[in-house]
Design a protein around this nucleic acid. Structure first.
Length: 269
DNA sequence: CATCTTGTTACGTT
DNA sequence: AAACGTAACAAGAT
């Protein structure tokens, strides 16, 4: 499920636990989610530590705990965070539970594409510090986008938008929304955009990211009815402008939908 | 039963 | 060396 705004939504679901001590943990440590975690160390250090704060960057989450403990979470395709009662009994897909006096903080992921990290140290772990600038932040500059598209000039635009090094937080539906609003065909090679098309992509990228954060993050509600979002799945989907049928094709390994009128393929040079 | 999935990574190829 | 394309991972929904 989770892209930029949904990740932020799930981050907030553990907020009630801030300032409280972890008294116990439960984890399905044999699952692939924990393949990068020293489980023995986690089980030893986490109880007695206080949950301090959390942050999201793209699709990555970082939770900090007293004693210099850092818990990284990637939700993968189907990961969720939620709160339960303190006597919660984890079921099959509840792979990580942090028990507090008043509640249980639960990470659930049926499909196991998520990933947990655990680091110890005074500063945030290196994998976190070296993440690319969030698209939402002022540090994400136009020259970053231009340089990234140039580096991946042969990739279809859709595939380039899915690369987290360049567009952190963008996933399948957001990429389709961005390209529809920019009037760009998903198959266009990333290095083939002229100045005006680059500008449209830049503005659309920010419009969709900001809009998703505003509409989805607070309560996981859907974006406005005018968004392409509502049309891109079902076979009956139509362009919100023309009300005509959409084109569909796998691009960059994902199902991609676009309006053949708004997003016509550019003529060869 | 076959096909689909809002994500990433390993690996072989260009 | 870097970029590119695809299979694989796992489980549930349709």
């Amino acid at each position: 499920m989770p892209e930029l705004a949904e990740v932020e939504y799930y981050r907030r679901r553990w907020d009630d636990g801030r300032g409280d001590i972890i008294i116990d943990t439960a984890l399905h440590s044999q699952k692939r989610i924990f393949r990068r975690v020293d489980v023995k160390q986690f089980r030893k250090l986490m109880p007695g530590s206080t949950f301090l704060r959390s942050e999201a960057s793209g699709k990555q989450l970082l939770f900090s705990f007293s004693g210099g403990l850092w818990l990284g979470i990637h939700l993968g395709m189907t990961g969720e965070l939620r709160m339960e009662a303190p006597d919660f009994k984890p079921l099959r897909h509840d792979h990580l539970v942090l028990f507090q006096q008043q509640r249980a903080l639960v990470f659930n992921d049926p499909r196991l594409f998520g990933q947990i990290r655990f680091n110890v140290g005074p500063e945030p772990p290196g994998w976190w510090s070296s993440l690319p600038h969030s698209i939402i932040s002022a540090n994400f500059k136009r020259h970053h986008m231009d340089a990234f598209l140039a580096r991946h000039r042969k990739r279809p635009l859709k595939a380039a938008l899915l690369l987290q090094d360049g567009f952190p937080g963008i996933g399948n539906w957001m990429a389709d929304e961005i390209l529809w609003r920019a009037g760009l065909n998903p198959l266009t090679p990333a290095g083939r955009l002229n100045a005006s098309q680059l500008q449209k992509l830049w503005r659309s990228l920010h419009y969709v990211c900001r809009g998703a954060m505003r509409h989805i993050s607070p309560d996981h509600s859907d974006p406005p009815a005018s968004w392409f979002f509502h049309q891109r799945w079902g076979p009956g989907g139509t362009c919100p402008i023309h009300r005509k049928g959409l084109s569909r094709q796998t691009v960059g390994g994902r199902t991609t939908a676009w309006c053949p009128i708004c997003q016509s393929f550019p003529p060869p040079k």
